[in-house]
Simulated assay, not measured.
Amino acid sequence: MKTSLRLIVASTVLAMLSGCAVDGINKTATYGGIGVLAGAATGALVGGHKNRGKGALIGALVGGAAGTGYGYYADKQEAELRNQLANSGVDIQRQGDQIKLIMPGSVTFSSNSSDVASQFYNPLNQVAASLKQYDQSSIEIVGHTDSVGARQRNLDLSMLRAQSVGNYLIAQGVNGTRINSRGAGPDQPVASNADEYGRTQNRRVEINLRPMNTTQQ
């Protein structure tokens, strides 16, 4: 019986992890595999010596379900956002648990303005709809600028732009308690400020979506 239980747990782990190898970026399988391993270890400890195999099996199944649950949730939101925001100018990146929406300032705001440009209302409406549907994530909005001009002016402008995006989302029905806005000014460039192409990339607003219980960086 113990051998049988061990084989089931091992097979479950291998099945979950092999999902990663099938398509190379199967995040749901990744979360599930991690959940299985953690759950099996915990279950074995809780089950004691006599029931260690049974405890590991139960823990593996529970851990796997929890892991796949969040992975599936994030995968689905990411896929829907990519479909809804195609050709909008918004770049979508996935970094582990986090979904990052990168909005170029040249599309979102007029020069030296913190008012959201009217042509960007529709993409932000799509983002707001997604955030209301997928309400288990915290929302960090960060404004960024290039390094041209006074640093304090850039810090102020980046903060005002982040707040404008946050206020717009709240006006569309997103729960404001989920939102944290801040301005990074020129301090987190993603390209060189030596030329206009790089400065354009640095002028941006990012929306970072993370699980509710994850500490913001």
Results as ranks from 00 to 15, higher is better:
residue 127 V to R: 00
residue 203 R to E: 07
residue 163 Q to D: 07
residue 144 H to S: 13
residue 166 G to L: 07
residue 105 G to I: 06
residue 216 Q to N: 05
residue 100 K to M: 12
residue 182 R to N: 12
residue 144 H to V: 11
residue 206 E to M: 14
residue 138 S to H: 01
residue 91 D to K: 09
residue 211 P to K: 11
residue 189 P to A: 04
residue 5 L to K: 07
residue 174 V to L: 02
residue 178 R to E: 06
residue 97 D to P: 03
residue 116 V to C: 04
residue 215 T to N: 03
residue 116 V to S: 09
residue 195 D to G: 06
residue 131 L to P: 00
residue 198 G to T: 10
residue 202 N to V: 09
residue 156 D to R: 11
residue 56 A to E: 04
residue 90 V to S: 06
residue 58 I to P: 01
residue 11 S to E: 00
residue 56 A to G: 01
residue 157 L to P: 02
residue 205 V to D: 01
residue 93 Q to V: 12
residue 29 A to S: 12
residue 209 L to A: 06
residue 206 E to V: 08
residue 69 G to V: 08
residue 154 N to E: 09
residue 113 S to F: 08
residue 32 G to W: 09
residue 33 G to Y: 06
residue 117 A to C: 04
residue 182 R to S: 13
residue 164 S to Q: 08
residue 145 T to N: 00
residue 143 G to I: 05
residue 139 I to S: 00
residue 209 L to V: 12
residue 100 K to Y: 05
residue 172 Q to I: 03
residue 122 N to Y: 15
residue 93 Q to G: 03
residue 154 N to K: 08
residue 142 V to I: 10
residue 176 G to N: 12
residue 6 R to S: 07
residue 217 Q to D: 03
residue 181 S to K: 00
residue 50 K to W: 01
residue 214 T to A: 01
residue 101 L to Y: 11
residue 79 A to Q: 09
residue 162 A to L: 08
residue 83 N to F: 06
